[in-house]
């Protein structure tokens, strides 16, 4: 399973999702199986986006309940993974609009709690990492979420679908994000 969590994990996961969708089981069982396959990445994505464990768990459930309702109405979902992340993305945005303070990442807190291995890193690396973290904190929520989705293994096409962009625009958008990060970290 760990080995499959590589680039080809997409193929494997798609295969599993397709199998789940085409199985003879009831819709409830299908959705439960999809929940088992995707709950961890969706939870991680929501957690990083909104920074609240309880809320991330609630929204994770909500995402898959919406999937059930959608399929129950007879609607067709082509790419389950992209659909699930799009709903998660929209829920996170809605939740953040309601919340007064948006705290996806607390950089200061992170600085107080150095990541494992920091001590071993060279001073130069540490300095660069600190600059990188500051650069990361400067990113807008949409920019940050693009990277989060990529980290969760979504392809660029899927990220474009989640973000509601055309793929060429997403390429340019991500290019600008990386350019910004390089400038802030290395220049």
């Amino acid at each position: 399973m760990d080995q499959k969590q590589s680039l080809s994990v997409n193929v494997w996961l798609d295969q599993e999702l397709l199998r789940a969708m085409r199985s003879n089981s009831s819709l409830k069982d299908k959705v439960t199986e999809i929940f088992d396959l995707l709950q961890q990445p969706v939870y991680r994505y929501l957690l990083v986006a909104i920074g609240d464990i309880q809320e991330a768990e609630d929204l994770t459930q909500e995402v898959f309940l919406r999937l059930f309702r959608c399929l129950d109405k007879g609607q067709v979902v082509l790419n389950i993974r992209a659909w699930v992340f799009r709903v998660a993305h929209n829920l996170a945005i809605t939740r953040q609009k309601k919340a007064a303070v948006l705290t996806p990442l607390n950089v200061e807190a992170l600085e107080k709690q150095p990541a494992p291995g920091d001590i071993e890193r060279s001073v130069l690396e540490q300095e660069q990492y600190a600059r990188f973290e500051k650069a990361l904190a400067l990113l807008g929520p949409e920019e940050r979420r693009c990277l989060d989705l990529r980290a969760e293994g979504l392809t660029y096409r899927e990220i474009a679908e989640v973000m509601g962009m055309r793929p060429p625009n997403l390429f340019k958008f991500l290019g600008r994000v990386m350019s910004k990060l390089i400038r802030e970290t290395y220049d």
Binding site: T32, F35, D36, Q39, Q40, Y43, R44, L47, V48, I53, A56, E57, T60, Q61, F64, L65, L105, A109, L110, Q113, A115, P116, G117, Q128, Y129, F132, E133, L136, L147, D148, A151, M178, L181, I182, T185
Partner: peptide
Amino acid sequence: LISAFMRNQQSVLDTFPAPSLRLRERF
């Protein structure tokens, strides 16, 4: 940058516990 991002994300996730075991049950 990708390594740094993944390390950063991991450090964030490490500060939070994994989803509770009851998540599936409640779902």
